[in-house]
Design a protein around this nucleic acid. Sequence first.
DNA 1: ATCGACCCTGAAGCATCCCTACACTGTCGC
DNA 2: GCGACAGTGTAGGGATGCTTCAGGGTCGAT
Lengths: 305, 305
Amino acid sequence: MNERQLQILRELGELGSVTATAEALLMTPSAVSQQLRLLQRAIPVPLTERDGRRLVLTEAGQALAAAAIEVETALSRARQTIDDFAGLPDARVSMAAFHSAAAAFFPLLLTAGGAGRPRLSFADEDVAQDRFPRLTREYDLVLAHRLEQAPPWPTTVTAVTLMREPLDVALPAGHPLAAKRRLTPRDVAGEPWITVHDGFPVMAVIDALSAAANRRLELVHRINEFTVAADVVAAGGGLALMPRWTTRPHPALVLRPLSGVHARRHVDVLHRPERAARRAVRTVLSELRRAALAIQGRGPAVEGG
Amino acid sequence: MNERQLQILRELGELGSVTATAEALLMTPSAVSQQLRLLQRAIPVPLTERDGRRLVLTEAGQALAAAAIEVETALSRARQTIDDFAGLPDARVSMAAFHSAAAAFFPLLLTAGGAGRPRLSFADEDVAQDRFPRLTREYDLVLAHRLEQAPPWPTTVTAVTLMREPLDVALPAGHPLAAKRRLTPRDVAGEPWITVHDGFPVMAVIDALSAAANRRLELVHRINEFTVAADVVAAGGGLALMPRWTTRPHPALVLRPLSGVHARRHVDVLHRPERAARRAVRTVLSELRRAALAIQGRGPAVEGG
DNA sequence: ATCGACCCTGAAGCATCCCTACACTGTCGC
DNA sequence: GCGACAGTGTAGGGATGCTTCAGGGTCGAT
């Protein structure tokens, strides 16, 4: 049982297939298979089992994969130890975020001053909810969002909630419903709607809205990008759900809180546990928390939720 | 930087020479040297430096060696994880103790019942104080003793104090001084003494006694083994310091507490940090703590200290 | 100062390990 | 039932890690 084999087992647990593991670790499936066999030879309980043509971890395999995370974390800490002595200031932290969080957080992180700060590499990644965790393989930190009632992130990643952000109804300033301070599902169920694509986090609220009003909603447009959606709402294309804080207010729109349905999303930062062994990563994590507070404080004063 | 190289670095830090490291790891000094060179190649700060003809760790090397302990601990935990699944009840725990602790603790540990308990392998090892830590390489647990005022154990081993045991003056029941409830340095400084060999923990109390009485003590016999010393005391060979709880009371002797000097030893259990990852080792550790309480409770009723 | 003992390091050689390439078997979906 | 896909075995090659042996630096005793 060596570190390499444990790493392979861990990836297999997270990715669920030998081929994907091989791809992630830049090796051939055959090599993965062989290392798994060697690992198994040293261990008296089965670590893997076939599931159709796939290979998955047994319960024991999952337990060992969890232990493998500790091993990698310890090794990362060792590397950080020597970086501390080398005093390398060129630490780079890579970070991905979905669009609205990227727009809200990235500028704040850039202006956060201080000498010797880690240098940041940003990337925007708008993916379906279940794809966020595996982005942590490519980026040190991943800003992800999920609805409050959605299933939690897998335990293979560490997740910290940065904010619990209400989702409001965006409508043109001149719209009749704009006169009300808050909107009920029955208020809005008859309107045409602009929603995200299927599988994206906000979608479940639309379903809940439909259920609360006991009526099928008319989904006219499917637009993931909130700024695009905002422009379409302003042009009279329909109503849309918009995060209260992380999108810049559109001059021609107003936001109204929803009552009667749970319309709130978590903005979380995800990372593989061992990444937090790096001091630079921890620094950025705490800057993120500070930025989240700033974003909530400055938001347009719409209360409720 | 792999696990093996970190292990070698750690041993070098603890043993202080390439040759000793090679011996401990069952390899040749040349192999150790080569692995250290490979490790160094990956790291931008010097990890080792020459000290005469010896090779020792730099500060950075010591820090990395400490991190190496975490790596080994994580690997040990991984092994324990699979043992948990395998449900192996045949866990063996090896344990060494200096003589008096061995006599006091080993029987209690044997009678500690319970099904599926770890099986114990005992060994007695009476070594000079500075040799105790390296016994942890050979045994899972090492019972060691040191005087309260002595330097603490090195940080490379984990130490838990089981008891702080007073050292009393043993004297024949018919001795004139036996009439006193407690003895001062001046009371005993004129008597002939039986002491342990140089370098053994109790010796420092003799020195303190000498200093407190401002007088050179007459050291007649050098006997490490307390039961032997007890018999010699009974035969009128002189006075001796005896631990209050861990030696069986001799029928012809009485113990009298000393005042005026700090005469108390710690009975500690030492182990390499990663050994505690094993459940069986933790079980025995807690049994040791319970045994220590029992030993103190049952001791002959001599109060003071 | 010199010699021998000791300690570390380097070169050569060998066994082992780990990977790729390729062929094969089993499984799923159309 | 066929093609696509997933995993596994074998052969072979390069890298790795060790031992052996030789050499150079350091310490202590004579």
